[in-house]
């Protein structure tokens, strides 16, 4: 594995998370929240553009080709980001665990020996700090809100929790890149992530879901049925109008 292949998984996480969050546009609980989620989605899309352009460089593929012209099994995103958005509590729970992961990842990656990865991470860490705060604010309000909002927020955590482990799963093929200071060891991020997320859950009156981790497989190109639907929709415009732009 090289730095470009490493960037592929990071870029796919950002791309697919962005695509899913965009589904809230026209459907969010309030206009204010809709703009907030769209902003976050656009931040993630910006990260995806830089990372996917880098990933496609050795093969002469631009960011659009990387984002829209690959077969489903060529994507390397984690299952967490490809799931259906669910209700607002599920989206909030997913954004909390994902942005908290990205925050730790980019914080460490900004010291990468690969200048492009370090640059993207250095810029993105400020963005995901805000995403993480946004999700944390809603987790606190829903968890510490009414009986109904607490129940739904707790359910949101149950829905997303099995997919969290895949983010931190050790990957043997990363070892040379970690040794070279290019990549971040995902397993090494667990402690700080846990500290942050557990503090929010405790403050919100929510419990850590006692559910077993799902098998994962996204990093190897094995995806959920939900991803297949997402992929069809996401790539349809590019298939119908190759090279479309505005």
């Amino acid at each position: 594995m090289n730095a470009h292949e490493y960037a592929l998984a990071l870029g796919d996480d950002a791309l697919i998370a962005s695509q899913r969050l965009s589904e809230w546009v026209t459907k969010a609980p309030s206009l204010e929240e809709e703009v907030a989620l769209a902003n976050i989605a656009l931040d993630l899309l910006g990260q995806a553009r830089a990372l996917l352009a880098y990933a496609g460089e050795p093969n002469g593929l631009d960011e659009d080709a990387m984002a829209y012209r690959r077969a489903p099994e060529e994507y390397r995103c984690a299952h967490l980001v490809e799931r259906q958005i669910g209700d607002f509590a599920v989206t909030t729970a997913r954004l909390l665990v994902f942005s908290a992961y990205q925050y730790e990842l980019y914080t460490h990656l900004s010291a990468s020996t690969d200048p492009l990865l370090a640059g993207v991470a250095g810029k993105a860490v400020k963005e995901v700090a805000y995403h993480r705060d946004h999700a944390a604010q809603w987790t606190l309000r829903l968890g510490d809100g009414t009986e109904s909002s607490n129940r739904r927020m707790q359910n949101g955590l149950y829905v997303v929790w099995p997919d969290v482990a895949e983010l931190f799963a050790p990957r043997r093929e990363l070892a040379p890149l970690i040794d070279a200071g290019i990549a971040v060891d995902p397993a090494a991020l667990t402690a700080q992530w846990t500290t942050f997320v557990m503090a929010i859950l405790a403050q919100a009156g929510l419990d850590e879901p006692g559910v077993a981790p799902a098998p994962g497989g996204g990093r190897d190109g094995v995806h959920t049925p939900e991803f297949a639907d997402l992929h069809v929709e996401m790539t349809s415009l590019h298939l119908a109008h190759p090279g479309a732009s505005w």
């Binding site: 204010e32 929240e33 703009v35 907030a36 705060d133 604010q137």
Partner: peptide, 9 residues
Amino acid sequence: MALRNARDL
């Protein structure tokens, strides 16, 4: 939340 919404809007 008002402050955050204001930042976003």
